[in-house]
Amino acid sequence: MLDDRARMEAAKKEKVEQILAEFQLQEEDLKKVMRRMQKEMDRGLRLETHEEASVKMLPTYVRSTPEGSEVGDFLSLDLGGTNFRVMLVKVGEGEEGQWSVKTKHQMYSIPEDAMTGTAEMLFDYISECISDFLDKHQMKHKKLPLGFTFSFPVRHEDIDKGILLNWTKGFKASGAEGNNVVGLLRDAIKRRGDFEMDVVAMVNDTVATMISCYYEDHQCEVGMIVGTGCNACYMEEMQNVELVEGDEGRMCVNTEWGAFGDSGELDEFLLEYDRLVDESSANPGQQLYEKLIGGKYMGELVRLVLLRLVDENLLFHGEASEQLRTRGAFETRFVSQVESDTGDRKQIYNILSTLGLRPSTTDCDIVRRACESVSTRAAHMCSAGLAGVINRMRESRSEDVMRITVGVDGSVYKLHPSFKERFHASVRRLTPSCEITFIESEEGSGRGAALVSAVACKKACMLGQ
Rank of each mutant, 00 (worst) to 15 (best):
L2N: 15
R5K: 13
A6M: 12
E9T: 09
A11N: 14
K12V: 10
E14W: 09
K15W: 12
E17S: 12
I19H: 03
E22T: 15
F23S: 05
F23R: 05
Q24W: 12
Q26R: 15
D29L: 15
K31W: 12
Q38C: 12
E40D: 13
R43W: 09
R46I: 09
A53T: 05
S54A: 07
T60H: 01
P66A: 14
P66E: 06
E67H: 04
E70Y: 07
G72S: 05
F74S: 07
S76V: 03
L77A: 05
L79V: 12
G80F: 03
F84N: 00
F84R: 04
R85Q: 03
M87D: 01
M87V: 06
K90M: 13
K90S: 15
V91W: 04
G94M: 13
E95W: 08
E96I: 14
T103Q: 05
T103S: 14
P111H: 07
E112H: 11
E112D: 11
A114R: 14
T118P: 00
E120G: 08
Y125A: 03
I126V: 11
I126E: 04
S127H: 03
C129D: 00
I130Q: 00
D132W: 03
D132R: 07
F133G: 02
L134W: 00
K136C: 07
K142H: 08
K143Y: 08
K143W: 09
L146E: 03
P153S: 05
R155I: 07
E157C: 07
D160R: 01
D160I: 00
L164S: 04
L164C: 01
L165D: 02
K172C: 10
K172S: 10
S174T: 10
N179H: 15
V181P: 01
L184H: 00
L185A: 04
R186N: 01
D194F: 14
D194Q: 15
E196A: 10
V200I: 06
T206E: 01
A208E: 01
S212K: 07
Q219F: 15
G223Q: 00
G227T: 03
N231R: 04
M235W: 14
E237V: 10
N240H: 14
M251C: 00
N254A: 04
T255L: 07
W257R: 08
F260P: 02
D267A: 15
E268P: 11
E268N: 14
F269D: 10
F269S: 05
L271Y: 12
D278G: 08
S280E: 06
S280T: 09
N283H: 13
N283Y: 10
G285Q: 12
E290C: 01
L292T: 12
G295T: 07
K296R: 12
E300C: 07
E300F: 02
L301T: 14
R303L: 05
L307E: 12
V310W: 12
L315C: 14
H317T: 15
H317W: 12
G318P: 15
E319T: 15
A329N: 08
F330Y: 09
R333V: 14
R333K: 14
V335M: 14
V335L: 13
E339K: 04
D341A: 08
T342P: 08
G343A: 10
L352K: 14
L355A: 10
G356Y: 06
L357V: 05
R358E: 06
T361I: 08
T361S: 13
D363Q: 15
D365G: 08
I366G: 07
V367C: 10
R368A: 10
C371I: 06
S373D: 06
T376R: 11
A379C: 06
H380Q: 09
M381A: 12
L386K: 02
G388L: 06
R392V: 08
S398F: 10
S398Q: 07
D400F: 10
V401R: 10
R403W: 12
V406P: 03
G407L: 04
P417Q: 07
S418W: 12
E421F: 10
H424E: 13
A425R: 11
T431M: 15
T431H: 05
C434S: 08
I436R: 04
S441H: 10
E442A: 09
S445V: 01
G446I: 14
V455R: 15
K459H: 11
M462D: 15
L463K: 11
L463Q: 10
L463M: 08
